[in-house]
Design a protein around this nucleic acid. Sequence first.
DNA 1: TCAAAAGTGTTTCCTATACACCCATGA
DNA 2: TCATGGGTGTATAGGAAACACTTTTGA
Lengths: 253, 253
Amino acid sequence: MKSNYTYRYPRPSLTADTVAFAYDQKDGMLKVLLVERGNEPFRGKMALPGGFLEIKAKVDADGFVTEEKNETLEACARRELKEETGLEVNFMKELGTFSTPGRDPRGCTISSVFYAISRPVNVQGGDDAAAAHWFPVREILKAIESMPNGFSFLAFDHDEIIKRAFNQLRVDICFEPVGLLLLGETFTMTQIQNIYQDILGREFDRRNFARKVLIADVLDRLPHTGRNIRYKLNLEKFMALQESDHRLRLLFA
Amino acid sequence: MKSNYTYRYPRPSLTADTVAFAYDQKDGMLKVLLVERGNEPFRGKMALPGGFLEIKAKVDADGFVTEEKNETLEACARRELKEETGLEVNFMKELGTFSTPGRDPRGCTISSVFYAISRPVNVQGGDDAAAAHWFPVREILKAIESMPNGFSFLAFDHDEIIKRAFNQLRVDICFEPVGLLLLGETFTMTQIQNIYQDILGREFDRRNFARKVLIADVLDRLPHTGRNIRYKLNLEKFMALQESDHRLRLLFA
DNA sequence: TCAAAAGTGTTTCCTATACACCCATGA
DNA sequence: TCATGGGTGTATAGGAAACACTTTTGA
């Protein structure tokens, strides 16, 4: 028989959800990763990949918890992302915690949400989720906006979360060159510019844009094999820039 | 007899802690609010005010939770802050969630941390905590740095948290005029400048500084009673600025 | 009376932006 | 060969930083 877990005080459930972004070179659209929920609640609705924090607990004869060990929330987010969609990303950042009472009909569930940036890859539905797919962010946001009052497009409060995540992404790429993580192994300056223009919803002058991106000094210029200059992200420099709190110079106003 | 709370799966404890900052006009130092822990673990050590998320739960005959209702994390942070120190603040912002395994010796405890900005006020020790006092941030940070490896100055992982909070404050006052909340009812431009200089650790030209602050357009100029121009924070304008995502213009590089 | 703090505007320099020409490739 | 995309440098304008003088008040 499976054991139960008893505490002196009530406790919440804690989940980690991930808003994963990727850029689709084929149609030039920014995509977000959603899974179709296989179980209640919200069965059949689309939702962000995520799940419950894993806790190893020992209990005594009466079911009281005597010892416990948890994973970190980020580890939880990565694990769930992998299990549900097969995706592994190298950039993940905490977005915030969502604790509005009633946000999960099953009870008291608090969600720590991360947003992730992925290389353009294919994903398959994993264990828990019926199916995982990349959806155009703009379309999703449009669908969210067009829902009548009191109705939500996604499961739980994921409408709100995805809006927050996209806003955060827009702010962040103005300061840090995280947008470069959306690209493949090598890329041209034009490809970078297209992504930034799409996300920020505005156009840039080619030359000024290239200058600003190169100032960040995280790109290696490859000996051009073909006609155009190709670049490659220098991960060491990029990571070093992330560490040092150099958000202080904004790249794009 | 007090009832217990039983779940099918193990759950974490969830707390909300607050890093409250205030500015002391008397000595011109930025202070942070700490409480002396009255109970184990870390009894007698200084810690951030905070406590467990309050959950109203109903249980069936076997102790299984059938219904539950939680407060939001921010509400929890405000409630605990009030209970432990008597302090009520009007600005509070989520800093992040801390979930490193082992951060709380009592078991699996995840903390959502807020940072708050307070007017300069006195606080008293409240219910839970033995004593609450304002401490100079610089001194605390110095004490933290000077601890030998493996030892912490504050309880739990609060050393790390307070460092993160101070860094966040330094970033935020470069973009939003949140530093103005540190002041009293009315104030002079020089007082504002002193605060900013203290927090950012650099000096500004008087005239350039005043211009930048006034650009934000959240201050009302009072008909000067005394010798100097006095200002007053226009809360409506300030709140409106917070709502609109206008972090995009940085005030101080 | 003198020192220190505070009020006021202008100049300078730097950086962001706007812009034009040339070259290479593929249709 | 012509159109398109991409490579390169410069000129200009606007904003940030440097700066000087006068006035008031308190020691």
